[in-house]
């Protein structure tokens, strides 16, 4: 019971921070000198990008931990972080397209960061559907862990090859060039999304765990209980 309270607490804290940060970002922060009001998308876009990277890094760590320790706990967490990472990269692409249209004039550009995120989205969606099409829990766990390691190893290679392929990239703004009233909503939203993500990963891993238990339970024992 206490772990459910903990997840609920994290989730509510995250939602509250996201509400506050988005309010500041939408109504309090000044418009950008060049990008005007459109720049407000940054307060939700950048935290999503950070958390997507964090969650996929977690997926990689859980995959390695599963292959080393062979504990179901890591498999459940692996499944949770895969699904949430795919959700975040999907959102990231939509937010990026909506920011790109008014500022660059196009929804999509073959920039290394964009292309790498698209390749990540495809790779990890593929792993999720691999999990879907495997019935044996042991196979599902160790095969998807192996594919997650391969897909993660590929991410830096994709980034550098696309950068070289299309050597046209825009400047990344560092915190020094950004006004402090713009940093505040960004930080609050980032922490809000972080807490929400912790809650989501916890809840999703319980679902994965209970499904795995059901799949592995002998049918006779189920009838007698």
């Amino acid at each position: 019971m206490s772990r459910e309270r903990l997840a609920l607490g994290f989730g509510l804290l995250g939602i509250a921070l996201l509400g506050w940060g988005s309010y500041l970002g939408l109504f309090v922060a000044p418009p950008d000198r060049y990008m005007g009001d459109v720049q407000r998308i940054m307060y939700v876009h950048v935290p999503t990008a950070w958390l997507a990277l964090v969650v996929f890094t977690l997926a990689f760590i859980y995959a390695v931990l599963f292959l080393v320790h062979r504990s179901w706990r890591w498999d459940a967490l692996h499944e949770a972080s895969l699904e949430i990472g795919v959700l975040f990269t999907g959102l990231l692409c939509i937010q990026g397209a909506l920011w790109g249209k008014p500022t660059w004039g196009v929804y999509w550009a073959w920039d290394p960061r964009l292309t790498t995120v698209a390749v990540m989205l495809l790779s990890f969606t593929g792993i999720l559907s691999l999990r879907h099409f495997l019935d044996d829990p042991l196979r599902r766990a160790s095969w998807s862990a192996a594919t997650t390691i391969l897909a993660s190893a590929n991410v830096p290679v994709v980034y550098y090859s696309v950068r070289w392929w299309n050597s046209l990239h825009q400047l990344q703004s560092t915190p020094k060039t950004v006004n402090s009233s713009m940093v505040e909503p960004l930080r609050i939203n980032a922490f809000g999304l972080l807490f929400l993500t912790i809650a989501l990963i916890m809840a999703r891993s319980w679902i994965a765990e209970s499904r795995r238990r059901k799949a592995m339970a002998p049918p006779l024992a189920k009838e007698s209980s």
Partner: peptide, 27 residues
């Protein structure tokens, strides 16, 4: 090896393999 022993071999192989070989294809 994995796609062949799953329930959807023809679907899973390109789904997993295409994104992985993007850098090799570009180069």
């Amino acid at each position: 090896a994995l796609a062949g022993r799953s329930r959807a071999a023809g679907l899973l192989l390109p789904l997993l393999y295409f994104p992985l070989v993007v850098p090799a294809l570009i180069a």
